[in-house]
Every structure is written in C-alpha cells, then in structure tokens.
Design a protein around this nucleic acid. Structure first.
Length: 676
DNA sequence: GCTAACTGAGCA
DNA sequence: GCTCAGTTAGCG
C-alpha cells in the first residue's frame, strides 16, 4: 500500500492513469466518509436480511448514515452489503449502539421510507417461523406484497363516515345463539372467541359483515379470511351493504401488483381498518386488531403451499392471542381443530338450535341397492325430486369432478377397489393391463370385492358434462348449465334451471336453490386420506347450505355411512366430535403434533440422526414417495403429544439451522401438514 | 446463497 | 516464493 501511494516509484507511462485512479479513489473515499457519517440519533439499524438460509435468520446491525437518518425507520425496506453483495432487508429497529464488536457497515440505501413491516407482523413472522421450523424471511415474503413505487407515491384515501346499526346486526345473528351477545361484546371493546356453525341457508357473508361492523364500532380493526376470490367478492358486497363503500379493502393474490400494493398500503397506513381476503390477508397489518374471522377453515385453500406452509387458521389464532383480538371460526361444518378449541375452552360455541336447522332444510338419502344394480347413476326418486323442485326455482346438482378420484370400483356394489397390501387405490395403468396399486405398485390380477365378493371392476362414470347430458335428456324443456373447472359461475338467477357443478364450484343462487342434489357421495368418501370424512361432509354441506330456507337436499349414497348420517341430521358438531375421538385414538392431530421431513433418502436419514427431538417423539417411516417431481425422495413422519409440539418445532428449526450452516443437502420440513 | 480468505499442490 | 484451483468460514 505504501508503495502504491508514492507515484514516483512507478514508471512514467502509467503515472497519469495511476494519478487519475487515485483521484477517483479519493473522491470515493470522501463520499464513503460522508455516507458513513452516522446519524446523530440512533445511528444503529437492526436489519433482517432477506436471505433464505435458516442459520442467517437473525438481525445484523448496520450504521445509519446521516443522510438516511429520517428514512431508515423501523419497518422500512433497505439494501445492505451482506457477504460481499447487495441484499434486501427490513429495518426492525433503531438503536443507540450495537452489541456487535466489529466495525459496522453502513446501510447501502433506503429503498423506501414506507414502514411496511409493522412490529406486530415482525413478531408474528418470528413466531410462525418458529412454529413451522422455517425462516422469518420466508414468512415475510408471504406477508408483504411486492413494492409498487408509483402506487406508493399516491396517498391512501381516508375512510368516509359511517353509522353502526347494532339492531340490524343482532337481528341477522338471532338464529345463531349467542350471536347477538357476541356482537355486543365486540362492539363494547371485548375480544370474545367463538366457533360458529352456520345453519344451512345462512347468508354468512352478511353475518360476517355485521361482526366486522360491531368491531369497527369499538374503534378496532378486522381481518377476514375466506378460501377464494368468489367468497371475497361475496363478503365485499356484504360489507358494502352493512358499512357502505370505502370502509374496507379486499386483498387477493390475483388483483395485480399495483392494486394489491395500494390496498395493502391503505391498511398499513391505517386509512382502512377492515380487510377481507384470501390466505395472504391473514398477515394484513391492521391497526389495533379487534377481530379475526376465518370462514370454512377446513378448505385446503387456507393451507399455504409455500414454505414454511403456515395455515391461515393458525396465523389468525396466533394473532388473536398476541394482539388481544376476538376470533370467529365459522363454517357450515366444523373441523377437528375447531372442535378442539371448544374442548379446551379457548372458544365458545355459536350455533343454531335443532328446530331452526330443521325449519331451514330437510336432507334425504336416495339410492338403494336395486337402483344401483339397474346401473342408473341418478336414481328415479332424484329425478322426481328435481322435477318437483323446478316448479319453484333453480336446482343445484353436485357431481364429483372427473378425475378427482382416479380409481376403480366394484362393478356391482361400487365399493372402491383397494390394494390388499397397503389399502391404496387400485387403478389401470393402461388398456389391457391388470389393476395395480397407485401407492405401492402391487399388481392384483385376482381382485375380488371385499364387500360383496364380486370380481368385476369398473371405472366410475363421472363428470359434470355427463351428468348435465343425462339430466338434459330427462328434462327436455329445462335449461341445464354447468359450473366447473375453468368455467365457474359465481351466481345464478332465481329462474328455473338446473345447475350441475363440481364440489367447490357451486354458484350462489339468488334467493337460494329450491333443491340441492348430491350425486355419487361414495366417491368423495373413497379418498383414502386422514381427512376424507371431514372433507366429504364439508363439500356436501357447503353445497347443501345454498338451499333456500325450507328447501330440500337429496343425497345419493349409503345410509349406513356415519358421515352421510351426519349430513342427514345436519350435525357438523357431532361429526367433528366423532372425528376428533378417532384422531385421539389414532394419535393423530389435533391430539398430536405431526411433522414430515422430506428429501433425498440419505439426507432424510441424516436429518433424523441430527434431530434432537423430544424424548416422547415417535418416528414413522421413512417411506419412499413417488410422483410429481419427488423422484426418489423419502419421507419420515415425526409425532409427539400436542404438549410437546413447541419442543418439536424448536428441534426442527435447530436442525434446519445446523444443516444449512454445514451445507448439508436440504430437506423439506412441514409441521402439521394438512394431509399425509 | 455468496464472497473472500485460506489452503496446499504445482512449478519456476 | 509465487500462482492458482479448490475449499470453506462467515456474513454486521
């Protein structure tokens, strides 16, 4: 260095360029000095850097140059030099000094002074990262939308005036007790928590809107999460009807970056206090949160498919606890997780009484063995019921999605064909091949039905198009429409018509359907899954609930099946209790905490030896998993009693930090996977 | 993840 | 004694 500082020692030819570069270096140095001149107040910024590595999920201190003193506020996006490159980060806090012993690097740039990361969301990200054994930066990627500079320059319009009609809210809730008391509690600043089983034919978006209005009346904010955009639109309309325009915003993934950021900012800046959206909205930084609402928490759309895979219900319940807000877990059915909240006394029950439910709907079963043997898909009595109901209004027919269950069934009694080795579903790999298990690959040449002994197999005839065709033939002068896949109808008019829809794609009918028909219920039940029963009832009830008050529901299926019996009795609570008992007996969630570790077989083995799991932990597997880009991977399940859940999460987090620090092959960890 | 520092092999 | 590819620690 001393030599280079003295140009006389260098040959003349290069002297000029050296001088020029030295002048440049001096200028850079001077600029750097100015930049590095630390702010007078709180010159240290604690920065969370956006790197995906678990062992780097901690804050790093940087000095705040005086030029950034006012913009590098907590919550602001910044660029910092990290490991020799520029990375994004958030300022978590400012402070007078650092506990880092070395020299601090200056912040490189304040991307924007907009404080998009609120303290309560930063804390939430930390707790979720810990629970799901992931990183805060992964959670924040889900929580904070992409910045849109143009949008950020515009101010957020303040909310206009509004009035609270408490009487209207209580009237709307009167059939669901103690709903009115729940609303009063919210309106007076309380934070009640309830699991709400909506009666069929309930205009649930309106009730949710009234709960939001009651909370709003107490001067607090509301977060409402629903499964999909169709539901967001319904609640949006209901909020407008109850509170007027401009009191709330909607947050959906498909809104486009500008719109999304604008609505996020309206919440972040406190210009709006009520938000309704899909799962991403669960992170909305609503000021002074008073109520969280989740509708239909069993819908798998509430399960985030990106790491660390947080579930909307868990995110919202955690926020309700931490931010002392009320909670409303609503649906036409009840998940075992919601039932558990009642069992533990965390929440109270809100439901309609038996008489009210009976006034609203009658559910009948149709389809006897003789009907089936005749080979007709739609039993005669269903045809009659449809014709009958069409006299007074539209009819909804739910039919399982084509390819939803790619399995074979007994030709005679329609019991799904299962593998003798592992109970997996049998399927045909191709024409003229014997049936084989889709899970373990075992070929079963000599299959015979376990129920009736019959040896013939058939692929079920399915699909909304087939059903629509069959109904169209039977009802020559009736309009038959379909709603499924890419062409989902949101609503239909009150006109007399038949709407054939796949589960989840049922349109809402103006005034409700005169009748709802559920076809091929056995197919939804044949899914061999942890949640098959719960999921089947959810899909039936969500369709059946679209009936008009006093309407009729006809389900085609086996009257002996307990899940269908729960539908007939309209007893989501009983079904959840039964499912919960089964889960308890089988040591499955919510009585236990489960986690899966997936990856290369070697890496998974290795991870298990490194995992300092609680002593009570059970390891199930590893098993090889196939299909969908998981070639040659294996998976192990770790199970602990619920009370040890936090210990397991901590151990899994520690495992990920250890593995990333040592640069071992990555493994994917999922805590409480929605399905196994 | 990335960079920068470190290591030792290979060669003058 | 030096370069350089390969390795690895640590990131403020």
């Amino acid at each position: 260095m001393a030599d280079a500082d003295d140009p006389e020692l260098l040959p003349g030819m290069v002297r000029a360029t050296v001088k020029a570069s030295q002048a440049k270096a001096r200028a850079t140095k001077a600029r750097k000095a100015a930049e590095a001149e630390p702010a007078a107040v709180d010159p240290v910024a604690r920065v969370l850097v956006d790197v995906p590595l678990p062992h780097l999920d901690r804050t790093f201190d940087y000095t705040v140059p005086v030029a950034m003193a006012d913009t590098a506020v907590p919550g602001a996006r910044v660029k910092v030099r990290f490991a020799g490159q520029d990375v994004d980060g958030f300022v978590l806090a400012r402070g007078a000094e650092s506990d880092h012993t070395g020299r601090l690097a200056p912040l490189r740039r304040v991307v924007s002074a907009e404080p998009v990361l609120h303290p309560q969301i930063a804390t939430l990200a930390g707790e979720l990262a810990e629970r799901y054994a992931g990183t805060r930066s992964d959670v924040l990627r889900l929580a904070i939308p992409q910045r849109h500079a143009t949008t950020e320059k515009e101010p957020s319009a303040p909310a206009g005036p509004w009035a609270h009609d408490a009487a209207a809210g209580e009237a709307a809730w009167v059939d669901h007790q103690p709903g009115p008391a729940f609303l009063r509690h919210l309106a007076t600043g309380g934070s009640p928590r309830a699991v709400w089983s909506a009666a069929p034919a309930t205009d649930w978006p309106a009730l949710v809107a009234h709960a939001a209005a009651a909370t709003h009346a107490s001067g607090r904010g509301v977060v409402i999460c629903v499964p999909d955009g169709k539901d967001v639109a319904r609640v949006d309309r209901a909020l407008i009807a109850v509170l007027g325009e401009g009191q709330h915003v909607t947050l959906t993934a498909d809104a486009g970056p500008a719109r999304r950021y604008r609505d996020f900012l309206a919440i972040s800046r406190g210009a709006r206090r009520i938000v309704v959206g899909t799962r991403g909205a669960s992170f909305a930084p609503v000021d002074d949160l008073g109520l969280v609402v989740i509708w239909d928490d069993g819908d798998d759309l509430h399960a985030e498919p990106r790491a660390p895979y947080p579930h909307t219900r868990e995110t919202l319940l955690l926020r309700a606890e931490r931010e002392s807000a009320g909670a409303l877990i609503g649906g036409f059915v009840r998940t075992v997780e919601a039932a558990y909240l009642l069992r533990t006394g965390w929440a109270q029950e809100i439901a309609a009484d038996r008489a009210e439910v009976r006034r609203r709907v009658t559910v009948q079963l149709a389809g006897t063995e003789t009907d089936r043997a005749r080979g007709g898909r739609i039993p005669r009595e269903v045809h009659l019921a449809v014709r009958d109901a069409l006299e007074t209004g539209p009819v909804l027919v739910q039919t399982p999605r084509l390819g939803y269950v790619n399995i074979l069934a007994c030709e005679r009694c329609r019991t799904p064909a299962r593998c003798q080795v592992c109970l997996g579903p049998l399927a045909l790999a191709g024409p003229a091949t014997p049936p084989a298990c889709r899970w373990c690959g075992t070929v079963d040449e000599a299959w015979a039905c376990a129920e009736c002994g019959h040896r013939g197999l058939r692929a079920p005839i399915l699909g909304d198009a087939r059903t629509a065709e069959e109904l169209g033939r039977a009802l020559p002068n009736t309009r038959v429409r379909t709603s499924s896949g890419d062409t989902v109808l949101a609503t239909v008019s009150a006109a007399k018509q038949v709407v054939v829809a796949t589960p989840g794609a049922e349109p809402v009918a103006e005034g409700g359907y005169a009748a709802v028909v559920l076809l091929d219920t056995w197919l939804l039940l044949s899914r061999i899954d942890l949640r098959a029963g719960e999921e089947a009832l959810r899909r039936w009830a969500d369709a059946a609930a679209l009936v008009r008050p006093g309407g009729r529901v006809v389900a085609v299926g086996d009257p002996a099946h307990p899940t269908l019996q729960a539908l007939v009795r309209w007893d989501p609570a009983g079904n959840a209790e039964r499912e919960t008992d089964e889960r308890l007996a089988a040591h499955l969630p919510p009585a236990s905490r489960l986690a899966t570790i997936t990856g290369d077989p070697g890496a998974v083995d290795d991870a298990v030896t490194l995992l300092a799991a609680p002593a009570s932990a059970e390891l199930l597997g590893p098993v090889a998993i196939d299909g969908r880009g998981a070639e040659g991977e294996s998976r192990i399940v770790v199970r602990v009693p619920r009370a040890e859940g936090p210990d397991l999460s901590r151990a899994l987090g520690e495992l990920q930090r250890l593995r990333s620090a040592r640069k071992l092959d990555a493994v994917r960890i999922q805590v409480d996977p929605p399905t196994l």
